[in-house]
Simulated assay, not measured.
Amino acid sequence: MFNVSLDFSGSAFTLNLLWSALGVIAVLAVTFLVALLQKRHSVIDTAWGVGFVVVAALSFIASSSTTADNGRRLLLLFAVALWGLRLAGFIGWRARDGKEDPRYQEMLSKAPGNPNVYALRRVYLPQGIVLFFVSLTVQIGMFATGTLGVIAWIGAAIWLLGLVFETIGDWQLARFKADPARRGTVLNTGLWRYTRHPNYFGDAAVWLGIFLIVADSWPGILSVLSPALMIWALAGKTGKPLTEARMSQRPGYREYVEQTSGFFPLPPRKPKES
């Protein structure tokens, strides 16, 4: 089921690593300048998706003169671009009021010394490293030479499922927040009835799908730690845990947790009898 080809252009890929790293640095540098102008570092959340698109585009260009499979290259470019631009557009639209995100406000209010320098060290540098590491799956896939097989098309289906899931989840949450009467309450309908984090689950499915598209051809399987880091961060580190910590004091949230799956979509559980 896996395509094995040893015709992998190692020299071109090594050069691509340098270009991709420079691309990530450029995106973060521009983002930092915008943050200084707008006086809010939450703009980096919008740049997150853009960074992946830039890396995918650079890798697509760098692999154009190699024997890499064009079908996989185009599929990866399309998958990353659609995911990244949708995410960036949604986060940018959500932050259209121009206010700093409370998470960054709290963190930077405790910063020793210059808050902007602290943000560079604690926000931009870690996100740049994670972005580059996770994108290794895409970078390797752009140079893979085997043709698309069954595993790759299964990956494409999982990617589509994840993209649709997070898009609908974000739309449902945006509609919920737009209603002043629902302020301070908990969204427990739609996809949010089956998982407390449809957006994070969708993201995880997207990156699992991208990995399978790449893992279908050698040496893509070696990039398994890249999507694993993304999924771990979403489910166990910065995504789900931090969101639930902020929501834990909201009325009705404890009951919501008892009835609703924490990550993978499942039928709601019956309320506990008092």
Rank of each mutant, 00 (worst) to 15 (best):
R73P: 03
F90K: 07
A29C: 09
Q38W: 12
R72A: 02
W19S: 09
K99A: 14
L58W: 01
I25K: 05
A57Y: 05
R72L: 01
V34Q: 11
K99L: 15
F52R: 02
G51F: 05
S65H: 14
A68M: 08
R121K: 13
N116D: 15
V53Y: 05
E106S: 14
D69N: 15
A68K: 03
R96C: 04
F78L: 15
V34D: 02
T67M: 07
A29Q: 09
L28C: 06
Q38V: 14
V43H: 11
L36Q: 14
A21T: 10
V80R: 00
P102I: 11
W93G: 02
R121C: 04
P102H: 10
W19T: 11
E100P: 08
F32T: 05
P102V: 07
L22M: 12
A88S: 15
V123T: 06
V54E: 01
A47L: 08
R72K: 11
F13A: 10
E106I: 08
Y118S: 05
I61W: 15
S63D: 08
W83P: 01
V50E: 05
W19V: 06
A111S: 13
A88V: 08
V80E: 03
A111G: 11
E100D: 11
Y104M: 08
A57Q: 08
T31E: 06
S11L: 11
V55K: 00
V34M: 13
G89E: 09
A79K: 01
L74P: 00
A56C: 04
L36C: 13
V80I: 15
F90W: 07
L76A: 00
A81V: 11
I44M: 11
W19G: 12
W48E: 03
L22Y: 06
T66I: 02
A12R: 12
S63F: 09
G23L: 02
L125A: 13
N16F: 03
L77Y: 12
V50G: 04
A56F: 05
S109M: 10
L28Q: 04
T31F: 06
F78K: 04
V43P: 02
L125E: 02
R73G: 09
K39T: 11
G71W: 12
N116Y: 14
A81H: 05
S109W: 09
V53P: 07
S11K: 12
S65P: 01
S59N: 08
G92C: 08
S59A: 15
R72H: 06
L28V: 02
G49L: 10
